[in-house]
């Protein structure tokens, strides 16, 4: 496994926490993002994630570098899963270690925000009566205002 990777199998979050743990770290924060069943009243059956894998892994590593420069003493590992994911499956894990807890919390939130900005990964929601690539705001669930 790598510290910044796109995976196709179920994510074991502890493995990424172990990657960032060091004697000088007094805190490890771990965020796991999960597949949510209900979004704005529309029921999701499952999600399909797609990634431009080499660029996505490069951009995840870039986020790690940004964090390690911005918050001294931090270490980061991030994995994102692609393929078909069921409700409650882990889509993303972010582990950050740092000497003290405040930094580990802040840096972890920064990572998920940056993932949503620059990492080429796309989510398709599949409902009972249709599907949509999220990020493409053209199509909306039936009944939702355009």
């Amino acid at each position: 496994m790598k510290a910044f990777e796109i995976v196709t199998e179920a994510i074991n979050p502890q493995a990424y926490a172990d990657l960032v743990l060091r004697p000088e770290a007094g805190a490890v924060t771990m965020f796991t993002g999960h597949v949510r069943e209900w979004t704005k009243g529309v029921r999701t059956l499952y999600l399909a994630y797609e990634a431009y894998v080499p660029m996505a892994e490069k951009k995840l590593a870039q986020i790690g570098e940004e964090i390690e420069q911005r918050w001294e003493g931090t270490k980061v590992a991030i994995a994102h899963r692609v393929g078909e994911l069921q409700i409650s499956d882990i889509a993303v894990v972010i582990a950050v270690s740092s000497p003290h807890r405040k930094t580990a919390y802040e840096a972890n939130e920064y990572a998920i925000e940056r993932i949503k900005e620059i990492v080429p990964i796309w989510k398709k929601e599949i409902w009972e009566d249709g599907e949509e690539w999220i990020g493409d705001q053209k199509k909306k669930p039936e009944g939702e205002l355009k």
Binding site: G33, Y49, A51, Y52, M55, A56, H80, A91, V92, I112, I115, K116, E117, I118, V119, P120, I121, W122, K123, W133, I134, G135, D136, Q137
Partner: peptide, 9 residues
């Protein structure tokens, strides 16, 4: 590559 608006996470 054409990169549509991303939606990871």
């Amino acid at each position: 590559a054409f990169i549509p608006p991303v939606s990871g996470g």
